[in-house]
């Protein structure tokens, strides 16, 4: 735990850069996958199998003209994309990438910030991320953008509640809000008769897992809940007026928050770094990576399969279906916990 602060910064720097590269290749992965779903090839020209496509996209975005609407509220217009980008990236600080390792005689803790309320930290940060969308939409002085921003505000506030409530069952079972503790609790194996199964919370909290996944897709504004940027009706919604690298901050933010939420979901429900041979730091990391890619594939799969929800359906599902189910899950979990303790 007590490592020098410079070491912490190095770990944070490495993780942040890995995340950014991961984000770049997430776009490649998504394009390839969508292409496969639609029986196309996807990017093929840039590098082998289009692997250099993210670099080409980045260079193209940086070279574009940066347009600012005349009626825009300039300071707000400038910093709104940064809010989305920064809040997306900060969440990774509390994800446990393993226990401690020793490199050159220095003990390194593989969680950047081992907060005792780590899970709530992720929720808090993701709830702040909506400001980037709302303020950007408002500052653009564009009707379509404003509508996208309003949708986003209502959507994120509603689904944040589902996101938080679905996790309470996990917290009750783990008895802690610390993500490290939650992973440790899950890596314990349970013996039921002759079988030995792992204590992953997806097995004991299946309903919470489904609710969490639905809310997570809505929280990251991804299809089929991508109403804030519905291109068919709102001309891309909140980022209509954004171009060049300001647009790319929104783009980066969306993909990074997908990766962070996937890491978070793997940590909470799939045991995080737990898996065969996870005592080894490298294997544990590999397991976490595999689980995260599974969730990311799920995101792409949803986008390729489902049509967009209508706005009233979206809100109706959140308040009339998901919220009662989440409350039911809490009551049942608490009752079972009380009965077995």
């Amino acid at each position: 735990m007590d490592e020098p602060i410079w070491l912490k910064f190095i770990v944070a720097f490495i993780i942040m850069n890995v995340l950014l590269v991961g984000m770049a290749y997430m776009t490649w992965f998504e394009r390839k996958m969508i292409a496969a779903f639609q029986d196309r090839l996807g990017p093929t020209r840039t590098g082998p199998a289009g692997l250099l496509q993210p670099l080409a996209d980045g260079a193209k975005l940086l070279g574009k003209e940066d347009l600012i609407p005349r009626a825009a509220d300039k300071p707000v217009f400038f910093f709104a994309p940064l809010i989305t980008f920064m809040t997306a990236i900060v969440g990774v600080a509390v994800i446990p990438f393993g226990e401690q390792i020793t490199v050159f005689g220095e003990t390194i803790n593989l969680t950047i910030a081992d907060l005792n309320i780590g899970a709530l930290f992720v929720l808090a940060i993701s709830s702040v991320g909506v400001y980037g969308i709302i303020l950007g939409a408002w500052a653009s002085a564009n009707r379509y953008s404003l509508l996208g921003g309003l949708r986003s505000a209502a959507q994120v506030v509603s689904y944040e509640i589902i996101l938080g409530l679905s996790l309470i069952g996990v917290f009750i079972l783990a008895g802690s809000l610390n993500l490290g503790d939650i992973v440790r609790e899950q890596s314990r194996s349970l013996e039921i008769g002759p079988f030995e199964i792992s204590n992953w919370f997806i097995l004991s909290q299946p309903l919470a897992f489904v609710l969490f996944m639905i809310a997570a897709v809505a929280e990251t504004n991804r299809a089929p809940f991508d109403l804030p940027e519905a291109e068919t009706e709102l001309v891309s919604g909140f980022h209509t007026e954004y171009s060049a690298f300001r647009f790319s901050f929104y783009f980066l933010g969306e993909y990074i928050s997908m990766i962070v939420i996937s890491l978070f979901a793997s940590t909470l429900f799939l045991g995080g770094t737990d898996g065969p041979g996870s005592d080894n730091f490298g294997l544990g990391l590999l397991w976490l990576l595999l689980k995260t890619v599974l969730f990311l594939f799920f995101y792409v799969w949803l986008r390729a399969t489902l049509p967009r929800f209508r706005y009233d359906q979206l809100m109706g599902i959140a308040w009339k279906v998901l919220l009662p189910l989440a409350l039911l899950n809490i009551i049942v979990t608490a009752a079972v916990r009380l009965a077995t303790n």
């Binding site: 309320i117 930290f121 940060i125 939409a137 408002w138 921003g149 309003l150 994120v156 506030v157 944040e160």
Partner: peptide, 26 residues
């Protein structure tokens, strides 16, 4: 008081002020 800090952000910043902005923008 980390718990208090996070609840402050979730409740006030993440929910109440979003609704305030919602109204102001309309």
């Amino acid at each position: 008081a980390e718990f208090l800090a996070v609840i402050q952000v979730i409740v006030y910043t993440g929910a109440i002020l979003v609704l305030v902005l919602f109204v102001l923008m309309l």
